[in-house]
Structure formats: structure tokens, C-alpha cells
Design a protein around this nucleic acid. Structure first.
Lengths: 205, 205
DNA sequence: GAATTAATTGAACGTCCGTTTTATTATTGC
DNA sequence: GCAATAATAAAACGGACGTTCAATTAATTC
């Protein structure tokens, strides 16, 4: 046999991305063979090579899309400037919302970096650094204005990112907590963490 | 050839554990073949099977030792009872100290759970649950006594564990920060996070 | 110093891996 | 409806995988 009825390149590529992120998030990159991935898509392994030249290119592409999507989401959610507490709140809300909505690609992007060749790794890490820089800028402004009690901007930024990204490890919607609930609780903890004691506009303590 | 001069089962097993944790932490469980691991130990692949019946049993053993070591370290470091703030400080200090000292097995225990069969996974998760329960008990006592401002013990426990475990992702000793420095900074953040505002004995705010 | 036991090698097993090649069929543009 | 092109299948490639087994030698025991 050959071309199947109703076959469509765009749909197939999207299906490969979706199944790829899901399977790799569940089982790990090395544990997902091209044959297994193809089976999940409903296609033969050779068909995958029409869309991605190698398995590693598929992984790389998933990560790039994830990071670009995250940066774009933040670019749209980010307040123009001003009050560091408001900006930090926007950052945390955007971060948690984005990562909960894309749990699979988040797992892939956080856990499978070691499977990338040096050049591809550098490319992904550059995007990640750009994103983290945004948080550090907020923390620095807050520390300088006295709004935050942060003595080590870099370390605090890493701690916050680890904490808020960690939500996808345990959180499942439809339980006792909604996404809104969880976001509010993490926001409260983040504000306390940076010593933002006077942000009453949003109700934080 | 066969048995080598100076060969010793105990030393070989220890070398397999050390190289196993290191290689799996760096490259991932699936990416480390028995032949590569044997090469790092300086032995042939078949020799590994004298110590571990399967590759998965080696992984399982590494994780069990890690969790048992963590529980034992906490059992020794844990204050008898009393002030929740002191107990929380002891927990964070023990946790960070242990994990920095055992970065490889920490990575393995956190990242490779999905490679375990259901029974072995359950066994490891049971130990992990026991450990996390300790933190929740501290947070609950602190919340009830009014020492902490924690409204969701389970969620706060997860947030703290993610944050403090995350230190091994970016921290390398011998840089601008010592282990002591980093521990102190994470302790300050943790105390703020739980709203412990009056623990002056240790200098926290 | 002989017998026993512990530690390891080297070769082999069937299986699965990522990838390539060639052929075949569905869809599209005219 | 015919040519061009897009999408896929089927089979094959060499290589690596986890694991087993028989043979061999070092260390230990008596």
C-alpha cells in the first residue's frame, strides 16, 4: 500500500508532535522508538521521516516550539513596566497557566535536554536564558526599589522557577483544586518568598 | 581470560553503583547500556550480572539506597519535637546538605522513576511518601500553633520540596557560593514562604 | 599444595533500534 | 481525465541492545 485516503501532511505532522510530546513525557525520549511513535500516530515509521529528518530533530523541534510559545505568551501577558510586584504576579500567573496547559511539552523540555547534541542544546538554552532573564529583571527592580527583600537575584530566580514549574509534577486539574486556586496559592507563596509585604492591590501579604 | 588479579566483589559492586549513578544521572537510564556501564567500571558486561540480576534491578537498588539514606539522615538530624520553625530549619538544612552531597543519585531518583516496573515503583514511592509526610507534619504543627501562615499543607509541602531539591539543577560548589551560603539563603526563603515571621533565634526574618 | 569457591571473560542468542530505499497510491492543478 | 506531486507502505540495512552460558583463572580454605 501507499498513500492513505484522507491523508494530509499538516494533520499528520501535528499528530506526530502531539503523540511525540505525550509519549516522550510519559516514557522518556530514549524509551520511545520511532516505531512506537508511528504506531500511536497510526502510520508506519518511515512516514515520520517525511516530517523530521531524525528522531533528535523531532525532539529539538518540540523543545523550540515550547520555548518560543512560552516567550510569546509572556510577551503578550507582560505588563508594560512599573510596579515590580504586579510584574512578578503577572510572570507567575503566566508561567503556571502556560505550563499546566502544556504539561507534556514542559516535561519534555525540562527532562530531555541531555539527549540533544551540543548545538541544538545551546539553541534551546539560549531561549531559556532569555526567559529567565525576564524574571531576574523583575526581581532586580523590586530589590532596588525596596519592594522586595531579595539579596541574591540569580538564586532567588532559580528557586522561584523550580517551585512554580514543579506544579506540573503533582498537580492534576479536576481534583479538589482548580488551576485558578493553585495559581493563587503559588502567587501568595512567591510574594512571601521575595518579601513583598505591601502589595495590597492584589490582596497579597 | 577469567578472574583478574586483585578482583574483589565488594569493591566491584561499589564501583558499579558509583558509575551507574553517575552515568545514569548524566545520560539517562535508557541511554546507558550495560556495556557502557561495564566499560566505566573496567569490566565486561557479563560481570555486572553477578551483582544485579537485571538492569532494572540496578536502577531500583540505586533508588532504594538513596531514599533509605535520606530517611536515615533525617532520622539522625531531626530535632526531638517542639518549635516548628526549628524543625523546619533542620529539615531544609538536612535536605539540601544530603542532596548536594549525592547529586547523582538524587538525579536518578527524581528523573528515572518511569523506568521502574509498577511493583518497584510503588516501593520507592512509599519511601518518598514517608519522607514527605515528615515535612507535612512540621507544616501542620506550625499552622495550628500559629507559627506559620500556611493554608494548604500539602501544596506548600510540594512547593518547598520542589524548590529546595531544585538546588542541584543549577548549583555547583566552588563557585561564588559555598554549600553553607546556599543553604542559608534557601532557609531564609523557606521561612518567608511559610510566613514564619518571628524566628529570631536563627536570624531568620 | 590440593580442593573449593569467587570473580570474571568471551562468545553467542534473538530482538529491537534509527534510518534508507523503492514502489505505490491519493490528491491536486490544469 | 490526465499529468504532476504529495503522502505513505513495505522491506531491508547494519548495528546495538539486554541477557545467558560455558570456560577460565585468582583467591581462599584446609
Amino acid at each position: 500500500m501507499a498513500r492513505k485516503a484522507g491523508s494530509d501532511g499538516e494533520k499528520t505532522e501535528a499528530a506526530i508532535r502531539e503523540a511525540g510530546a505525550r509519549l516522550i513525557a510519559h516514557h522518556g525520549y530514549e524509551a520511545v522508538s520511532m516505531r512506537r511513535l508511528a504506531g500511536a500516530v497510526g502510520v508506519q515509521a518511515a512516514a515520520l521521516y517525511r516530517y523530521f529528518p531524525t528522531k533528535e530533530d523531532l525532539l529539538h523541534s518540540l523543545m523550540l516550539r515550547h520555548m518560543e510559545g512560552l516567550l510569546q505568551a509572556w510577551a503578550e501577558a507582560r505588563p508594560p513596566e512599573g510596579d515590580p510586584a504586579l510584574r512578578l504576579a503577572a510572570f507567575v500567573e503566566n508561567h503556571i497557566g502556560f505550563h499546566i496547559a502544556r504539561r507534556h511539552s514542559t516535561h519534555v523540555s525540562n527532562m530531555e535536554l541531555r539527549s540533544l547534541s551540543p548545538e541544538k542544546l545551546t539553541q534551546v538554552l539560549r531561549l531559556r536564558a532569555t526567559y529567565e532573564k525576564e524574571l531576574r529583571a523583575i526581581l532586580r527592580d523590586g530589590a532596588e526599589s525596596g519592594a522586595f527583600a531579595v539579596d541574591d537575584v540569580g538564586l532567588t530566580a532559580m528557586a522561584i522557577i523550580q517551585m512554580v514549574t514543579g506544579v506540573i509534577v503533582w498537580f492534576r486539574p479536576d481534583e479538589r483544586l482548580s488551576v485558578t486556586d493553585v495559581t493563587a496559592k503559588y502567587l501568595t507563596m512567591t510574594m512571601r518568598l521575595v518579601g513583598a509585604g505591601t502589595v495590597r492591590e492584589n490582596g497579597h501579604v
